[in-house]
Write a protein that binds this DNA or RNA. Structure first.
Length: 673
RNA sequence: GCGCCCGUAGCUCAGCUGGAUAGAGCGUCGGCCUCCGGAGCCGAAGGUCGCAGGUUCGAAUCCUGCCGGGCGCGCCA
């Protein structure tokens, strides 16, 4: 809970600037940072530096003026000017901690609803490691928004009428010669997502052996889109079965959704037809009559990025003096079928409440918290009333890998030219880089590129769903959990098997989830099994271990002294905060408390930049700080009552904040590990 | 060709809207379990922040140009 204090401080400095220099500054623009050591202060501001030129005064003088002009600020004991011009703020340490301990509860609702779409795996085969990065980032965003009290709706888009599902249907019908009953029998007796994984790779090979076979794919896709059986029925069966396996896989990681939106419903409910009208009305798309795209409805691609910045001049026509043809993107093919972009536009219009239509809804399953998982439907007979209100959000975020940046840009452009520039501005593409494999891991899994090949020279090995090349999400999780189980049993031989299993699951999940968010989203991850399996250093289990250790201290305080956290908070009031100020040890503990308080600021920054590596690093730093203090400053063995109690209070707060940070990343803490 | 992204220690990466002495993990070397759990802690070595200019009181951070690498630009998604 640092943000309210920052606000007070900024507003006080703003007032001082006004009274002292008659300057009218935006409070939000006043820079605040953390000084390198506590000796300099708890909060510092370089505000005097940027004013030096304007005021024709030395930064040090300005800082001195400001320090003198600042009235009393709640929670602040003193403000001083450093010789180099920094304005340094010192906090009332004891009051700060007791206020934090008393301030439970969450922030009130803020802002309109944000729809976050993530996962969106083609429902034709098992999830792989790349999908995990998407889901972990998306789920962390959702949790971060909830942490701030921002209304959020999580959706998972299901492309059940796409080429990838069609390919598996081709495999089932033409390679395996199965009908719906046969497919069902296989689905009931195998790991169906794994079966389809292999089958999909075989279908790809089958096409490559004879390109003429691609006609079978086109025909199958057409049948699926137009509800012609048996392809349509088999496709629907495959999609539903596979989606359920994906839900189970993601559920293992603590990831779930409020609504599954089915692409098929977008077609059947004429969402596309409606969006098509809107786009035609505005002249956003037109029927091309000549050239190679004759017969297609196309959208002209705005090379300047589609959405003009506010107040910017309208972009000049793309067909300028250079004589280049403006580029065009096909939205409706000459055979009348809609491309993915078209369907996505209709979906996006609905999300932002500008389509003028709604889905019907059915119950699909149960969420992790026991609530209903809803799915869209176009069938009146299975529609359920009443249902929660979906769609019509103020903002939307699509979690999709960076290779689709171009399509997402087109999506924004479509919104803008269809008459909704504001909606376009409120749509964000949360892009992230790919997950590849390290050479060592590719070798271990049996698909190392041939020596001397182009692939072998690259720094990592790319995965390919088409070739069946990659690490399945469930296999990875199984390995992580097995490895964790070995460690748990070795360290806790007396633990009952069921408890050990539960602990191992939490540790394994923590390892995967932390690994997926610790890198910047703009970085390609070269996934390495050994690195991911290592639980040492900067890893999810390291963070859990810190909380487990803290829990042990509080368990013992309860057992030995009969003190719970509420009792500690009360008892501390009777003593001066000697453990927080006075010597190096106290400064160290205080620094940790101060750091722990910044979770809200950190989460805010992550939501603003969509960069959750910052949250991961922050949590790791907190755990590191805790572990260091844990070794240096005993609680239970401390004989001075005041120091012992204040240390307990401080570590209790740190533990609470660290656990909250972990929860935001979807990491649960085991009771023992 | 055009667009986006990346280049920081041996390796993998942090470094927030420019600010106080460029950090962490792994690896290497050396310490610490009669002491709240060693998945831990303490210490050491290790960096022309790709290169060259520019803006600034101040640049790893912002701008320009190069160099090296990745991705995208389809009647696939």
């Amino acid at each position: 809970m640092m943000l309210p204090l920052y606000d007070r401080l900024r507003s006080a400095i703003r007032t001082a600037l006004a009274t002292q220099y008659a300057l009218d500054r935006d409070a939000a623009a006043i820079p605040l940072e953390t000084p390198p050591t506590r000796a300099f202060g708890d909060i510092g501001s370089p505000v005097a530096f940027e004013l030096a030129r304007e005021l024709r005064k030395a930064p040090r003088v300005i800082a001195q003026d400001l320090a003198a002009a600042l009235g009393p600020i709640e929670g602040v004991t003193s403000v001083s000017a450093a010789p180099n011009g920094y304005l340094n703020v010192f906090l009332d340490r004891g009051a700060f901690l007791t206020a934090r301990l008393a301030a439970r509860g969450t922030a009130g609702p803020r802002g309109g609803k944000t729809i976050v779409e993530h996962t969106a795996i083609n429902p034709n085969k098992a999830a792989h490691i790349g999908h995990l990065r998407n889901a972990c980032l998306g789920d962390t965003l959702v949790r971060a928004l909830r942490f701030r009290g921002s209304p959020v709706e999580v959706q998972n888009y299901i492309d059940d009428t796409g080429v990838q599902v069609a390919d598996v249907v081709v495999g089932l019908r033409h390679l395996e010669g199965l009908d719906l009953a046969g497919v069902r029998a296989i689905a009931d007796s195998t790991r169906f997502d794994y079966y389809c994984w292999d089958l999909y790779a075989r279908v790809t090979e089958w096409y490559e052996a004879d390109k003429a076979r691609l006609a079978v794919r086109a025909e199958t896709l057409h049948e699926i889109e137009h509800a012609i059986d048996p392809s349509a029925a088999i496709g629907a069966f495959v999609a539903e079965r596979i989606v359920r396996t994906h839900l189970v896989t993601m559920g293992r990681l603590g990831i779930d959704y409020e609504l599954l939106t089915w692409e098929g419903d977008i077609l059947r409910l004429q969402f596309w037809a409606r969006a098509f009208e809107l786009l035609k009305q505005k002249g956003a798309i037109f029927l091309q009559t000549e050239g190679k795209l004759a017969g297609c409805w196309v959208m002209t691609i705005d090379e300047d990025g589609g959405v003009p910045a506010e107040g910017a001049e309208p972009a000049a026509p793309a067909d300028g003096a250079d004589g280049e043809e403006p580029r065009e993107k096909v939205i409706v093919r000459s055979n009348g079928t809609v491309t993915y972009v078209g369907k996505d536009m209709a979906y996006q219009f609905w999300k932002l409440g500008v389509l003028g239509r709604d889905f019907k809804y059915r119950r699909f399953g149960t969420r992790l918290d026991g609530e209903t998982l809803w799915a869209t439907t176009s069938r009146t007979d299975e529609a359920v009333e009443p249902h929660p209100s979906f769609g019509a959000a103020t903002a939307t975020v699509n979690v999709i890998d960076v290779r689709q940046a171009y399509l997402q840009q087109l999506l924004k452009q479509a919104l803008a030219v269809a008459g909704h520039p504001e909606a376009a501005r409120l749509h964000t593409h949360f892009s992230y880089e790919m997950v590849a494999l390290s050479h060592a891991t590719a070798r271990e899994l049996g698909f190392a590129p041939p020596p001397g090949s182009e692939e072998a020279a690259k720094p990592f090995v790319e995965v390919s769903g088409r070739k069946g090349l990659g690490v399945k999400a469930d296999d990875l999780l199984d390995r992580m959990i097995d490895k964790a189980l070995g460690e748990v049993v070795r360290r806790n031989p007396e633990l009952p098997a069921a408890d050990a299993r539960q602990t191992a699951e939490r540790v394994g999940v923590a390892a995967v989830r932390y690994f997926m968010v610790k890198f910047s989203r703009t970085k390609v991850i070269a996934f390495d099994i050994d690195e991911a399996l290592s639980f040492e250093g900067e890893s999810g289990p390291y963070l859990q271990y810190a909380v487990v250790r803290a829990n042990n201290i509080f368990q013992k305080l309860r057992d030995r002294d009969g003190l719970d956290e509420a009792a500690i908070a009360r008892a501390v009031a009777a003593h001066p905060p000697t453990a927080l100020a006075g010597d190096d040890a106290a400064d160290r503990l205080w620094s940790l408390v101060l750091d722990a308080a910044k979770l809200d600021d950190v989460v805010d920054g992550c939501v603003r930049t969509l960069e959750f590596a910052g949250l991961a690093k922050y949590a790791f730093g907190l755990a590191q700080g805790f572990n260091a203090v844990y070794h240096a400053l005993p609680v239970l063995a401390e004989e001075r009552d005041d120091v012992r109690l204040w240390r307990a209070a401080a570590l209790g707060y740190v533990r609470q904040q660290l656990a909250a940070a972990l929860h935001t990343m979807g990491i649960d803490v085991p009771t023992r590990m």
